[in-house]
Amino acid sequence: MSSQIDRKQLWQRLHQRLLSGSSPTVTGEIATEFLPVIIRSLSRVFPNVNDPHLIETAAEEAIIFYLDHPAQFDPARASLFTYLRMRAKGYLLNTLGQQKTSQGGDKVVELDGAETVYRVEAQDEGDAETALIERESQADIEHRLSEIITDPAEFKVLALMLEGVRETSTFADALGITDQPLAEQTRLVKQCKDRIKKAVQRKYKI
């Protein structure tokens, strides 16, 4: 349960950073956090959708809309995951409805950009567990990099970098240098980050 709370706090922070427009990495963090799990969640809800690209496209549409209009998400009404999944579901249903109509089937049910679904299902947090993700992608990256960054403290710094953490104090804590003067902490943290990046470059650069 606590990890679920942590996750929701992370989502809140991502949302605030996106709203503030001050972080160039937050769009990547949001896509990495949500896109694979929304696709997975919708694939479970719509197992009979023959073309998996429809689900993928719907999830992408939801993310793009949110990145362009973050203020339309109201954190008081639902978690970010629920909001994005509902938007994606709305896009998917519209697409499926349009396909059905073009094939002579029933009339399309317009969902107005999933807003209706969002209202109806805003409180449905059951699937939020889906997003307490199995963050395989991150785990895989960390696993591969653990062969290069073998020092445990430096590896903590690496993991924080991959999470988009910026606060020097967090890195200083990971390195166990919080007793140092602030300027020295800043210097040592930067030195450690540069050392990590250089080690990765040495391994992977052409």
Partner: peptide
């Protein structure tokens, strides 16, 4: 901003 991106993606 470039530094922030470089840190996040372990690039130069």
């Amino acid at each position: 901003e470039v530094r922030e991106i470089a840190d996040y993606t372990l690039t130069d």
